[in-house]
């Protein structure tokens, strides 16, 4: 654990304003924070896991209804959104990289670009949602399955597909809605010069969160939009 070398570093770090009282050194503090973030992301995987489980089970039970429902999703908008989100992960990674190098203005610029791309994603998502409302594909009393070319018994599980579609993409979008203000706040802190090559943990942790949200979408896109179409 703590060695002589650490003890040296500790004295130097003691005066660092970002070292909280119960940690020995800045690296120790950063490792704990990063570890904590990874544990949090594990809980997020389990959180989404319940919905992924439900999707898997119902897709097996009601394969035809899921295929027909999936065809009604807008592949173009979904693909564009996937590209937008992957780009936002790239800009986020650049933001983290810039803050590690201590480039303040570049950090702020990359973070703001990430926010912009995230907002584009949410905008496109809103267009898709509106389309589903217009075509009565929102679960509930007014749900209509005619456009999905499903009849009788088969039309009912279509509601389950759209329930899962809204629950999964909605939960994903909620994570983005939470993430965007956080990135804006981090960008503001970066603008105020709060980060340095020694201390930029908040940028890194926000980056981890954003990449996680991105990865969730990387799973959602094929499951909801792609894998049904070949049948």
């Amino acid at each position: 654990m703590s060695s002589v070398a650490d003890a040296h570093g500790r004295d130097a770090d003691r005066h660092h304003p970002d070292l909280v009282h119960h940690f020995e050194s800045l690296p120790a503090q950063k490792e704990a924070a990063t570890f904590g973030m990874w544990v949090f992301l594990v809980t997020e995987v389990m959180f989404f896991g319940g919905l992924f489980l439900a999707y898997t089970i119902y897709r097996n039970l009601y394969f035809h209804a899921f295929v027909q429902s999936s065809r009604h999703l807008n592949l173009t908008l979904g693909a564009v959104n996937t590209a937008v989100l992957i780009c936002s992960s790239l800009t986020m990674a650049m933001g983290v990289h810039s803050s590690a190098l201590g480039r303040r203005r570049a950090t702020v610029a990359w973070l703001l670009l990430t926010v912009a791309l995230g907002s584009v994603f949410l905008g496109i998502k809103a267009v898709e949602y509106k389309d589903k409302f217009d075509h009565h594909l929102v679960p509930g009393e007014r749900f209509q399955a005619e456009e999905l070319h499903l009849e009788g018994e088969e039309s009912r599980p279509a509601q389950i597909f759209y329930a899962l579609y809204f629950a999964m993409t909605g939960l994903h979008a909620t994570h983005m809605v939470i993430g965007i203000p956080i990135i804006l706040f981090i960008a503001w802190m970066a603008h105020r010069g709060r980060f340095s090559p020694e201390y930029h943990t908040p940028v890194e942790l926000t980056g981890l969160y954003w990449h996680f949200v991105d990865i969730i979408w990387i799973f959602l896109f094929p499951l909801l939009y792609l894998i049904g179409r070949h049948h």
Binding site: A54, I57, Y58, L61, Y62, P139, G140, E141, R156, P157, Q159, I160, A163, L164, F166, A167
Partner: peptide
């Protein structure tokens, strides 16, 4: 609240899930 329906047997949902 929103009648999601994934546990609703009338839609083919499974309460045992």
């Amino acid at each position: 609240t929103l009648h999601l329906g994934i546990y609703d047997p009338r839609l083919g949902g499974d309460p045992v899930l």
